[in-house]
């Protein structure tokens, strides 16, 4: 029960962070529209506010409580949670940075942050590269094997992450398929990824690939044949066409793939929990452990906030990358 509540909290922080730079615009627009409707349409207009109210109640307010908890305000709405927790650092006056400094002074926490950043950056880059390779190549030189590969890449979408993580953990373990193969080739213990940060990256890639492939496949399909043919006609080889004609036109799609994969990996729990190493752990695992296994809700809030800040940084990348000067298409 308590585990569920912390993972929602983490998820909220992540969603809030990712949405922060991109999402508010449409939301603001929508509410303005509904305000107009309200003056005219009464009930229908009020209904427009429901999503906003929903977000505030189930997203906004818990985040505020969580921030208060982080800065040591253990009373009021946080009384129940802090009474059950341990290791709290209470605020004197407007708040304390005690819980934050306590965590950041801890070398293992800094390693966790570093590992998390590395995982989401590398995962996002790898996912984008693979998805782009598959979809761009297939667009330029359609072939059966590539079509099959694209189809296979979407399959993880239909496999629950827990089951997938456990299977991958087994598959990449020292008695798993990859290592057995390596041993057959005379390379002892050469291909073990379970319990390693590389394994987390691989598994996150596996989990994130379907969305990336689907999105880029749609993007690539929207490029006109003649636009690509004109590139070949002008003397560009496929790689040049991909880089100089397709990529710039699909910059927004690529940004979405990169940022969503990054945010997904950043906030993930199951994959690093099952596949990842005992140390360093990713922040999502850290947050859940700190809340449930260490029983330190205040420190868990700090971790949640760290995730939020990282997500906000990814959000900035998203805002920059999707700010399009492209006018021709769409």
């Amino acid at each position: 029960m308590s585990e569920t509540s912390v993972s929602t909290e983490v998820a909220e922080a992540v969603v809030g962070g990712a949405g922060a730079p991109g999402a508010p615009a449409p939301r603001a627009r929508r509410s303005r529209r509904s305000a107009e409707g309200g003056s005219r349409g009464g009930l229908a207009g009020l209904l427009g506010y429901l999503p906003v109210a929903f977000l505030l109640v189930f997203g906004g307010i818990p985040i505020v409580f969580s921030l208060l908890l982080m800065f040591g305000h253990l009373g009021g709405p946080n009384a129940a949670i802090s009474e059950l927790g341990q290791g709290e650092i209470p605020a004197h006056g407007i708040g304390t940075l005690g819980a934050i400094t306590q965590l950041f002074e801890n070398a293992s926490y800094r390693q966790d942050i570093f590992a998390t950043v590395m995982v989401f950056v590398v995962t996002a880059a790898v996912v984008l590269a693979i998805a782009a390779l598959l979809t761009f190549w297939h667009r330029l030189r359609p072939s059966k094997p590539l079509a099959v590969l694209q189809f296979l890449a979407v399959i993880p979408l239909f496999i629950p992450v827990v089951i997938a993580s456990f299977s991958l953990w087994t598959f990449w373990g020292d008695r798993g398929f990859t290592n057995s193969l390596a041993q057959l080739a005379g390379w002892s213990n050469g291909l073990i990824f379970s319990g390693r940060i590389q394994g987390v990256i691989l598994a996150e890639t596996w989990v994130s690939l379907p969305f990336a492939v689907l999105l880029l496949r749609a993007g690539v399909a929207s490029l006109g044949d003649s636009s690509l043919d004109a590139g070949r006609d002008a003397g560009a080889r496929p790689f040049t066409i991909a880089r100089r004609i397709m990529l710039p036109q699909l910059r927004r799609e690529c940004t979405v793939v990169f940022c969503f994969t990054a945010v997904g990996a950043l906030g993930s729990f199951t994959v690093p929990y099952i596949v990842g190493p005992s140390s360093p752990v990713m922040l999502g695992v850290d947050a859940v452990n700190t809340y449930t296994a260490y029983n330190q809700p205040q420190q868990a809030a700090v971790i949640g906030f760290t995730i939020f800040v990282l997500a906000a940084l990814i959000g900035c990348v998203y805002a920059l990358g999707s700010r399009s000067r492209r006018v021709g298409r769409g």
Partner: peptide, 13 residues
């Protein structure tokens, strides 16, 4: 024991 421990604390509170 992991979830049990967490719930135990909830319980005590």
């Amino acid at each position: 024991r992991r979830s049990a421990a967490a719930l135990a604390v909830v319980g005590s509170v």
